[in-house]
Design a protein around this nucleic acid. Sequence first.
DNA 1: TATGAAAGTTGCTCCTT
DNA 2: AAGGAGCAACTTTCATA
Lengths: 148, 148
Amino acid sequence: MELDRTDFRILSLLQDNGKCSYSEIARNIHVSEGTVRGRIKKMLSHDVFEFIIHTNPNKIGYHVQAIIGLEAKVGYHDEIASQLQPYRAVRFIGAFSGKHDLIIQAYFRNNEELVTFVDQQLSEIEGIISVDVNVELKQYKDTFSYVD
Amino acid sequence: MELDRTDFRILSLLQDNGKCSYSEIARNIHVSEGTVRGRIKKMLSHDVFEFIIHTNPNKIGYHVQAIIGLEAKVGYHDEIASQLQPYRAVRFIGAFSGKHDLIIQAYFRNNEELVTFVDQQLSEIEGIISVDVNVELKQYKDTFSYVD
DNA sequence: TATGAAAGTTGCTCCTT
DNA sequence: AAGGAGCAACTTTCATA
């Protein structure tokens, strides 16, 4: 799907405020409200973006965030990923080139929950060679606005 | 701020669909539309969550995602973070305990842009001892729904 | 919690390319 | 055809009581 300048202008406004109305966007970029609606509908159907909310983990009781690098046996990536998938705590799973084969990002209520996850859940998964846990001490930036 | 069951139910519905209307939420959890609106207003004012859109980086031309671990000289964390902050490409910056002092997540249009970022931008920042670049090969999960 | 005016959304048709 | 504008019925929002 090809995105033109109008599409990008729409995305740009929405990323600043996901509650921005069609007509508000229309006024801003000087097209009709129907056009905005049509473009958004099309982009949504092509999975260009989605309307979501970003919940502050700390405010809902998840005080420990970790980025965990995993070394995996060759051929085990998909299997490990699919076993990690169901965990609510795990918000991101990716396969990478570099020091770590898989990197996951996860939220926990406290340190104990993190330890339990590593020692019990992770250790039970076959194919994991090593686990490199990094616990977040301070967050400097966490944005979702990367449309120009 | 204390969140009760109603607040969590609201968050739960919104995280599945950020465009869910007040009245639709109200019908679902059997409270009045005004109540839903009031709760949301209160939560927004307390930064419990925000309405955003999540754009699929690939669909807008960002085909290379990297997680970069940085080793930093003692006392340089804040300074390095504040220098990285302005970069559009950099969507996440955090200080961590573990192998890496700082971990960043960034999007690039192509490999060349990544190389330029590491070789030119990163190398100019004082206090960075080492850089560990991990390039994403495959994404298994990337969710923002971690409210029960 | 209820009400009603104002604003927003939706599906339709018509027009232009 | 495809996309944008305009219209009218309907729904949602939000201040006020």
